[in-house]
Every structure is written in structure tokens, then in C-alpha cells.
């Protein structure tokens, strides 16, 4: 019997998350793991937008910024519990994506790229400049999620690193599960169809504008939740979270790993998150190496790292 790709992806993901801590030399690695999962979440949203629907965005860090600052500001100014602040951020991101997405998604290719880029930059500019709220470019502290304390009361004591490792793994697992459900659903098929040929998708009845908007909104929510988690884990956030380079980083992670598949994109997130940590000795050369990796992978492994590696393995079997 053929195992469904969904089951395989989720099992691999769960297994790796469970096994990896056994090899951690120090507590510090839990944080890197958590960072990988949090980036993986944003990137999973981009799989839906770029991988399924074929629409580019160079501004998704803007939604991460909204999610992050919702967690910084809503508990203080609105008295919301941090968990609800995450939901508020996601709702704001979804709302903004829905309003702006309608006109923006009529654009194609580079025109869509510049419009989304502009959106992201505008969000980061608001976060930088409205310093009476956001405290400006120096950043702002973020209240604790509070869940760790609850767990401790229940007798389950975790370090902050451990808590964020397991919590973000759980959230990523749910995010991946949702995205994989979508892949083989009517909506997912329609998204992949409009990616393949918009004209043909229209002629089989796909309301292309509506579906693109769906993908845009869903991916915005992923980015927003990812931003919320990042802010709460670091207990601090600066407007850089919404900046152009963060948007680029997300897209690069997704495409480098293989934007066509959830697992591939998360793999890309893992590589690009861990790489700078591994290369701290070569800090001077970090940019140079990152740039070279981006170019080389796109030239020689066009589908992305994971699909290319898998293909090579299958090739050997045959």
C-alpha cells in the first residue's frame, strides 16, 4: 500500500522533533530548534501561497510584524491575555490581507512582487515611526505567554528554551497538518490548478481572484502567528521583524528547501536558521556564503534542496 504523503510528512516531522533533543549538547539548542519551528511555520504559509497557488510575496514579514506587535501591545493597552493577543494579531493580519489582497492579487509576477514588497515596507515603517506606541526602532518588550507557569503549577517544569521548543513544535505540527489537508482538498486542487494555468483554471470554473485571496489570507495568518511566537519567545521585538530582509529570508527558506512541499520548505527553514549558528566563526563571511548558497541552489537544484535530494535517491533505487 502507498503511504499518503501527508502521513509521511507529519510522521517525519513529529519524529525529528521528538528525537532531536536527545542529541542536544546544551540547553541553547532548544532555542535554535524553536527558532526553526517558528520560521518553519511562516514558511509553511508561503508553501500555500507560492508553492500551491504560484503567487509571490516579498512582504509577508509585514504580517509577522503585526502578529509580533499585537503580542507586545494588546496585553498592555487592551488588557488582553497574551494568547488572545495572538488571535487578535492573526485577525488583523487576515483582515489587512483580505482588504489589500483583492486589488494586489490582480497583478502578476514582478508587479505582484513590488506591490507586496511595498505593503511589507509600509507596515515596517509604521512600526518604526509610530514610536509613541511601538517605542520605535529600538524595540519593545513583550509579555510572557504564561503557559509555562501553568505547566509548572501542574508539576511539569520546563526551561524557557524547552517550553518554546515543544510549544512551537506543536504549533508547527498543526500548521503543517492544515496545509497538508489543504493540498488534496478541493480548494488545494483549485489553487494548484491556477498555478499551472490560470486560463484553464478559469474555464473549469475556478474563481481565480477569490482563491488567490484565500491563499493570501491564510499565508498571512501563518506569518502573523509565527511573528507572535517569535516575539513571545524572545520577550522582545523590533521593527526589523517586518523588514524587507525578513520577507526575503522567508521566501528564500521556502524556495531553497522546496516550496512545492511542506516538508521541503520546513527543511529550508531548518537549514537557513541553523547555518548562521554553525557559521558564527565565519561571521565575516556570512553574507558572502548566504548569497552564494542562494544562487547555487537556484541554478543547480531548481526544485529546492529536499525534492532534488529525494529525486537523486529515487534515481539510485531505479
Amino acid at each position: 500500500m502507498r503511504l499518503s504523503p501527508k502521513l509521511v510528512s507529519l510522521s517525519v516531522l513529529a519524529l525529528l522533533a521528538l528525537v532531536a533533543p536527545m542529541f542536544f549538547p546544551s540547553g541553547f539548542y532548544y532555542r535554535i530548534g524553536a527558532l526553526i519551528f517558528i520560521n518553519g511555520l511562516a514558511v509553511t504559509g508561503l508553501v500555500i501561497l507560492i508553492g500551491y497557488a504560484g503567487q509571490i510575496s516579498l512582504g509577508h514579514a509585514g504580517f509577522a510584524g503585526i502578529g509580533a506587535y499585537a503580542c507586545a501591545l494588546a496585553p498592555v493597552h487592551l488588557g488582553l491575555p497574551p494568547a488572545l493577543a495572538v488571535v487578535l494579531g492573526a485577525a488583523l493580519s487576515a483582515g489587512l490581507a483580505w482588504v489589500v489582497g483583492r486589488p494586489i492579487l490582480k497583478l502578476q509576477g514582478y508587479y505582484l512582487a513590488v506591490a507586496t514588497l511595498g505593503l511589507g515596507i509600509l507596515i515596517s515603517m509604521v512600526l518604526t515611526n509610530e514610536s509613541q506606541w511601538t517605542r520605535g526602532p529600538d524595540g519593545i518588550s513583550v509579555p510572557d505567554l504564561g503557559l509555562r507557569g501553568v505547566l509548572a503549577d501542574m508539576g511539569w517544569r520546563l526551561t524557557a528554551g524547552q517550553f518554546w521548543y515543544w510549544f512551537s513544535a506543536l504549533v508547527l505540527f498543526i500548521g503543517a497538518w492544515l496545509a497538508l489537508n489543504l493540498h488534496d482538498s478541493p480548494t488545494g486542487r483549485a489553487l494548484r490548478a491556477l498555478h499551472g494555468s490560470e486560463v484553464a483554471a478559469r474555464t473549469v470554473g475556478v474563481d481565480v481572484a477569490r482563491l488567490k485571496l484565500n491563499a493570501f489570507v491564510i499565508s498571512a495568518v501563518y506569518a502573523s502567528v509565527s511573528g507572535s511566537l517569535l516575539a513571545m519567545m524572545n520577550r522582545f521585538v523590533t521593527p526589523e521583524i517586518a523588514g524587507f530582509m525578513h520577507s526575503v529570508e522567508m521566501v528564500v527558506m521556502a524556495v531553497l528547501g522546496g516550496v512545492g512541499s511542506v516538508l521541503g520548505a520546513i527543511f529550508g527553514a531548518a537549514i537557513l536558521t541553523a547555518l548562521p549558528q554553525a557559521l558564527t566563526m565565519f561571521h565575516e563571511y556570512e553574507k558572502l556564503l548566504l548569497g552564494a548558497v542562494m544562487i547555487l541552489v537556484m541554478i543547480f537544484l531548481r526544485e529546492g534542496l529536499l525534492p532534488s535530494i529525494l529525486r537523486r535517491f529515487r534515481g539510485k533505487e531505479e
Binding site: 483549485a190 499551472g196 473549469v204 512545492g260
Partner: peptide
């Protein structure tokens, strides 16, 4: 105008869009 990256079955399934439409 084929959906190149999809399987043959998925292509045929995509044609059913109007009959299988459901909530996201």
C-alpha cells in the same frame, strides 16, 4: 493548457471544481 506539475488524475479532478466546491 495542462496543469503540468499535477498528476494526470489531479488534472482530471481539477475539472470537478464546480461540483466539489466547499469552504476553505
Amino acid at each position: 493548457q495542462i496543469f503540468q506539475a499535477m498528476s494526470v488524475l489531479d488534472n482530471a479532478m481539477a475539472g470537478h471544481h464546480l461540483r466539489e466546491r466547499s469552504s476553505v
